[in-house]
């Protein structure tokens, strides 16, 4: 277990290093800077701005400053010629620097404001996906071949085959304009979260229901289920305690990709429902050449995807003791 975690951590460090380095240098290599506006700035002003954001330094120095952990400017470590008032900084100290476009905010502040919203949306979506997917999967596995099964499988394939923004617009037309159940857009209360969460989770619910159905069908035909039924356990106990555990294994392994997918999908859903989450920041910051914000969000998503994948692997061993962590 510990060895597994240590190895994962090592790869995590390598991955993160690659992400930071590549995206840093790629970003700078692209033409156009964050301060290219419609007005051309006075050269003196431009110099000042560049000095403020250290854009006048050499690239390697900027990179070192960005990664940290030492602050290299005039307030930095005494050893590098600073006054020592602000010795540390950079990504290694979880400081992503000031945003270039939102001038009064640091990247940390922006992320701090919008991450909880995105996370909440993601959690709601995940809950929808799991609740709907697993229950639909179990139901269609138990009633295999019935009309219910057929209907659910059709719905599931439809959910996989449509982009989530199309599903979202259908839902909006149905449950907002035709039958006013939910507010159109915005964020704040639970009613605001249900619809976007559902639209975001729907494709994943579809996939999960398919996985659950296959998994359950496989487990239900096994010997230990027959034994459990033969010894007179209630059907509910057989299904929930004995069958579900094995039947959900494929679902658990899908959770890693699913979270990554939900993160991606939230870009779209947040735009449709005007949710002030992280999604808009990523695209806009890449377009605006807001170096720091763009990289901050990228790093954040890398961390999220990686740690969630690790968690999924851990959960996998809990559910299936036959799997050895060392082999993953």
């Amino acid at each position: 277990m510990l060895r597994f975690l240590a190895r994962r951590l090592l790869w995590f460090a390598i991955t993160l290093f690659c992400v930071v380095t590549i995206s840093f240098f790629m970003m700078r290599a692209v033409r156009g800077g964050p301060f290219d506006g419609e007005r051309t700035l006075d050269p003196a002003i431009e110099r000042n701005i560049e000095a403020k954001y250290h854009l006048d330094w050499s690239l390697p120095k900027q990179y070192l400053q960005y990664v940290g952990p030492f602050n290299l400017d005039e307030h930095g470590f005494e050893l590098f010629g600073g006054d020592g008032s602000d010795r540390f900084g950079g990504v290694l100290c979880l400081e992503f620097g000031p945003s270039f476009k939102y001038k009064d905010f640091t990247v940390d502040q922006i992320i701090g404001q919008s991450l909880p919203i995105s996370a909440l949306l993601g959690i709601v979506a995940m809950m929808w996906a799991l609740a709907l997917g697993i229950s639909a999967g179990i139901a269609s596995a138990l009633r295999r071949g019935s009309g219910l099964d057929l209907g659910m499988r059709l719905a599931a394939t439809g959910g996989i085959a449509l982009p989530n923004f199309v599903i979202a617009s259908f839902l909006v037309i149905l449950t907002v304009f035709m039958i006013p159940l939910f507010p159109v857009a915005g964020w704040g209360s639970i009613r605001h979260m249900l619809l976007p969460g559902f639209a975001l989770g729907a494709p994943f619910a579809a996939y999960i229901s398919r996985l659950t159905r296959t998994g359950m069908l496989e487990v239900l035909s096994q010997d230990h289920i027959r034994t459990a039924q033969a010894k007179g356990l209630a059907p509910r106990t057989v299904i929930l305690r004995h069958a579900l555990k094995g039947g959900l294994l494929p679902v658990v392994s899908y959770l890693g990709p699913a979270t990554a997918g939900i993160l991606t999908g939230s870009l779209v859903i947040e735009k449709i429902f005007f949710i002030p989450g992280l999604g808009s920041h990523f695209i806009n910051s890449a377009l605006n050449r807001d170096y720091t914000l763009s990289m901050g969000v990228t790093i954040l998503f890398t961390i999220l995807v990686y740690s969630l994948n690790t968690l999924v692997d851990l959960a996998y061993t809990m559910l299936d003791p036959r799997i050895d962590l060392e082999e993953i």
Binding site: M26, V30, L287, T298
Partner: peptide, 23 residues
């Protein structure tokens, strides 16, 4: 491949296409 798998790929794409538009 594992490293690439753990990257949030959509962001790489958005980034690449932004660059593409520039050039």
């Amino acid at each position: 491949v594992d490293i690439l798998y753990s990257l949030p790929f959509i962001f790489v794409v958005i980034f690449l296409i932004t660059i593409l538009n520039e050039y």
